[in-house]
Amino acid sequence: MPRLPGLIKGLGVTARTAGRTLFPKRGWKTLIPAPQKGAVTVQYPHEKEAPPDRARGVIALHEENCTACMLCSRQCPDWCIYIEGHKVKAPPRREGGKPRTVNMLDRFDIDYALCMYCGICVEVCPFDALFWTPEYEYSEPRIADLLHDKDRLGEWMETVPDFLDYETGSEQKVRKVPR
């Protein structure tokens, strides 16, 4: 049956936490209650938590780099990337050359209702056309509206943060985001 110490200790923990939440400030300011500062929760619509730079929020498309090679679409485990494209003739790179055949991207849709945010498409892209951005506010009331086309994906390109430096001891090279 209840002995005192354990029960009292428990009361102490909750009281301490309440105190820390209500009076988070130090020194004489301790007396001013500031729960907004002491609470760990973020009051979402008023203030927004910044996700880490690597956060996989949404996939942005840098359209100029995309060659419609279909790699991402084929590697996608959920079959949620739809690409259509056609070939066009482009002028040669240098004078006297032959005209080149390049791929033009007509459609690049990602169905975020299906997407599992695994990042395989970003990883397999050989031309640096797909990037993760921590942007997360793109919910839709209807599930069908979650199919985003290449214009929308392109808009997110602005929110792509630069790649982070690595911790010492790493041999990875820091990549650059095309702007």
């Binding site: 049956m1 209840p2 002995r3 354990g6 029960l7 200790k9 428990g10 102490g12 923990v13 909750t14």
Partner: peptide, 15 residues
């Protein structure tokens, strides 16, 4: 430590 005080040491929890 907090969990230790709140639960493990708590007699009701042990009971």
């Amino acid at each position: 430590d907090e969990m230790e005080d709140l639960l493990v040491g708590n007699e009701i929890f042990q009971a």
